[in-house]
Design a protein around this nucleic acid. Structure first.
Lengths: 197, 197
DNA sequence: TGTCGAAACGGACCACAGTCCGCTTCTATT
DNA sequence: AATAGAAGCGGACTGTGGTCCGTTTCGACA
């Protein structure tokens, strides 16, 4: 044979120096966010801290939003794992409706904790193949387990929507609604959508 | 009498030159948005167009987000008027549930039309004393007319949440859900929350 | 109409996100 | 080991959001 033939390794295997830099950048980014807060992180500082040039930062992440999205994704992934294969009631093992309630509360807390990061990451595909997609898919699955009838995709989206940070901020920061009431309210919503218990 | 006595005109009556500049700025801003799109508007260009200095722009609007929020508010106000005192079924006169459905569809379309502006305005109190507040209040009122039981404030928020631009974008741009299905889905959601028909 | 304090103005200035392009480093091939 | 071409690098440079502060304008009072 003459050419390596692209085979299954479609998107090129990434050079070693590039990999090293990627890791250095992620480490530096995480550390910086912890040290000076999301707002305090400048792309210059990040590049300097990671010991690379500014161009490299933008090559890897495309933009400030992309960077924040990448950092966010890291934490997000852990949570997804907890949902998919962690202990009940969030993970598999509990009855579907209990899982749904656990999901709502857990997601609410997570989004509040990551508020700054989420906002800095913006809307774009930053949350790569999707925070929103994953959560919606999961709720959709639980709804089908619960034998709910109707446009499950839409209903799932409708259940996830009030957990979005922009909505939570309005309730918590502006209206000073206590957490307990949020959790209770969302549970009630879920009950109505599913159709009693 | 010796002092003018603040009377009811509490927050100082605004100087005439200031008022003139404010108006010039709003006009220029609206025109610029129309001409070059939200993204194309730079604060320098705006200042120049309105014939004022850059400092003045920031004095009035505080930030780019504030400016966009002000422009947005203008359109938003018209819509609020339509809801409060326009023709049925959006305005008063129709039965509450019909008003609710009309509200959902109308708000959905409005948010999609203003997508760019809303995003540029960001989350802060930019949408002054509140786009979100107004919509939520209105839905809360309709729910009470419908004799719905429970935490009406939360349920109202939950109904408004899927109409937020960030959620709509996900559905329309990424998942390519057709408008008809969105409207139908939201109607179904409303029915479930209200509790049958 | 002259004066005075306060509010508003405006443009020079600064910081930071994002671009560009010549240079370096890697990997595949012989 | 030498070579060639591609992939990656990095820092000087640009454009724009936002600040600062000396100057101007306003309007109240005498």
């Amino acid at each position: 044979m003459s050419k390596p033939l692209p085979l299954l390794t479609s998107p090129a295997p990434e050079r070693r120096d590039a990999a090293r830099n990627r890791e250095a950048l992620m480490t530096a980014a995480t550390a910086l966010v912890e040290e000076v807060g999301v707002r305090g992180v400048t792309m210059d500082a990040l590049a300097c801290r990671a010991g690379v040039g500014k161009g490299t930062v933008f090559r890897r992440f495309g933009s400030r939003e992309g960077l924040m999205g990448a950092v966010l994704n890291h934490s997000e992934t852990e949570w997804q794992a907890a949902v998919m294969s962690g202990p009940p009631p969030l993970g598999p093992g509990a009855p579907p409706f209990e899982r749904l309630l656990a999901f709502g509360e857990s997601r609410m807390l997570l989004n509040l904790r990551h508020a700054e990061l989420i906002e800095a990451a913006g809307n774009p595909g930053a949350r790569s193949v999707g925070a929103l997609s994953f959560t919606t898919m999961h709720v959709r699955y639980l709804l089908s387990e619960l034998q709910v009838e109707g446009d499950l995709s839409y209903l799932a989206t409708a259940l996830v929507a009030p957990l979005e940070i922009i909505v939570l901020r309005e309730q918590v920061d502006r209206a000073h609604v206590p957490m307990g009431r949020l959790v209770a309210g969302w549970s009630d919503l879920a009950r109505r959508v599913v159709g009693v218990t």
